[in-house]
């Protein structure tokens, strides 16, 4: 489904990704772990098409198509979805309007009829229940004044509505209490299917108890320095990143937060 080859990317002239290689097949769940600042969000943002990051080398193929040639919105329509580490607040645009515009853009792309306000309201209410967000959140501005956990649930709600082919979840588990973690994991598990892949960035083994990955990768210094099965996550939890020859202080700090 997704094939990343020797991907280099920089921001403001500083190279962040220094040759990423990764193959993801339909139906698989991959977890990416790694110290703060190692480039996990950068990778996620580059895949989604954030132009703040410049790709200097390498290629990304999504189902035979050269992803890097596509505009952000085209990537989304081809099935890329990024749950942001820091979802954006947009006062003045209601969550409902935002979600409906997005869903209809996808439907239009697929040649399906757009949903009218009433139809969409019904769907949105169902899905908001699934992520345990009160429907009143639909009326509020996009993420406006949402708590950290509510924002993350809103991201999962979008994934459920948009039904992507590749869902990239950038620390969607951070800042969640135990119940919310369960809700979000259930949402992600509901997304799991044979024709869909999931790439999740996380610092915590605890998420991987709920969503069991097929592969775990360690990203450090802009490269994937180790890959393995889910047992790698357990090993990391036990030993930190030090044994891999990289500093782990920052990571320990963030885990304590």
């Amino acid at each position: 489904m997704l094939s990343i080859k020797n991907l280099h990317a920089s921001v403001e002239g500083k190279e962040i990704l220094k040759g990423i290689n990764l193959e993801i097949k339909a139906g698989e769940v991959h977890a990416i772990m790694g110290p703060n600042g190692s480039g996990k969000s950068t990778l996620s943002q580059v895949l989604a098409g954030n132009e703040a990051f410049e790709v200097t080398e390498g290629e990304v193929i999504l189902n035979g198509e050269n992803l890097l040639d596509l505009e952000t919105e085209e990537r989304a329509r081809e099935g890329i979805f990024l749950a942001f580490q820091y979802p954006v607040e947009i006062p003045g645009v209601s969550n409902l309007q935002f979600l409906r515009t997005a869903v209809n853009a996808m439907r239009k792309h697929r040649g399906e009829e757009e949903m009218n306000a009433a139809e969409f309201m019904k769907l949105a209410k169902e899905v908001s229940k699934q992520v345990d967000l009160d429907p009143s959140f639909l009326k509020r501005g996009v993420n406006e004044g949402f708590s950290g956990g509510e924002k993350k649930r809103n991201e999962i709600m979008q994934a459920l509505l948009l039904q992507p082919k590749l869902a990239i979840l950038d620390e969607t588990d951070s800042g969640l209490d135990i119940d919310a973690l369960k809700v979000v994991s259930d949402g992600v598990n509901a997304l799991r299917s044979e024709d869909r892949a999931i790439l999740m960035v996380t610092h915590y083994q605890r998420l991987l108890n709920h969503i069991v990955p097929d592969y775990v990768h360690v990203l450090a210094g802009g490269r994937i320095i180790k890959s393995g099965g889910r047992e790698l996550a357990l090993e990391l939890e036990e030993k930190g990143y030090g044994w891999l020859g990289i500093k782990d202080e920052e990571t320990a700090d963030s885990a304590a937060n």
């Binding site: 989604a48 098409g49 954030n50 132009e51 703040a52 505009e71 952000t72 919105e73 990537r75 989304a76 329509r77 979805f81 990024l82 942001f84 979802p87 954006v88 947009i90 006062p91 003045g92 645009v93 309007q97 935002f98 515009t101 997005a102 853009a105 996808m106 792309h109 501005g141 996009v142 979008q158 948009l162």
Partner: peptide, 24 residues
């Protein structure tokens, strides 16, 4: 720019995203 990116990353056309943010 970041709001714009967030909107288009959901498949919303750039023009539509501009309109949404301007209306907002």
């Amino acid at each position: 720019e970041i709001s714009l990116f967030y909107l288009v990353s959901r498949g919303i056309a750039r023009r539509e995203a501009n309109v949404l943010l301007t209306m907002a």
